[in-house]
């Protein structure tokens, strides 16, 4: 039986009638046509489908779209603001942190969540944070560099406050 849901994706609310079986990633890719979020596995391992749901890095293959009713979702398509790339996007390009680009959106989204909670991470913390995102091209070396480089830029701009407290109330 279809459910009426309204998910806000990249700032726009999309009211849709969907089946409960629909995964969030299928809703994004197939219902809304936002194909920047990718599917790389079927066992919740690879992290290619990671999006922000109410600020939390979420594997969109492991969440039902109906569970996102009323939530705010940010996908790779919504990371840039008014044409200005997010620091993580600039850093990935600058540090050559992507090759084929398939895992890249998920990795950047995970990094955004991570850096908002840990603005000055060590390399070991960065590596731990992206353990749920598999990349077969880069060997992670430049991804670590990019996340470190983005953290420096994000620290300079304001607003990097821990969000964990807000999560408790949800």
């Amino acid at each position: 039986m279809p459910h009426a849901v309204a998910v806000t994706v990249n700032g726009t609310s999309y009211p849709r009638e969907i089946e409960p079986t629909l995964l969030l990633v299928e809703y994004l890719r197939e219902t809304l046509g936002l194909t920047g979020t990718h599917v790389g596995c079927d066992t919740s391992q690879c992290g290619a489908c990671t999006v922000l749901v109410d600020g939390r890095a979420t594997k969109a293959c492991t969440m039902l779209a109906v569970q996102a009713d009323g939530a705010e979702v940010i996908t790779i398509e919504g990371l840039a603001k008014n044409g200005d790339m997010h620091p993580i996007q600039r850093a990935f390009a600058k540090e050559h942190a992507l090759q084929c680009g398939f895992c890249t959106p998920g990795l950047m989204i995970t990094a955004v969540d991570f850096l908002e909670r840990n603005p000055s991470p060590s390399d070991a913390e960065i590596r731990h944070a992206i353990k749920g995102n598999l990349c077969r091209c880069t060997g992670y070396h430049n991804i670590v560099n990019a996340i470190r480089s983005a953290s420096a830029e994000m620290r300079q701009s304001a607003g990097a406050r821990p969000k964990v407290a807000a999560e408790v109330k949800r």
């Binding site: 046509g33 194909t35 920047g36 680009g101 959106p105």
Partner: peptide
């Protein structure tokens, strides 16, 4: 030289085969 491929890939604008509907 910075990669010419990157702008589309870091913004989700690249089209992979499964994206073709």
């Amino acid at each position: 030289v910075a990669r010419k491929e990157d702008p589309r890939l870091i913004t989700g604008e690249g089209t992979f085969t499964d994206d073709v509907t």
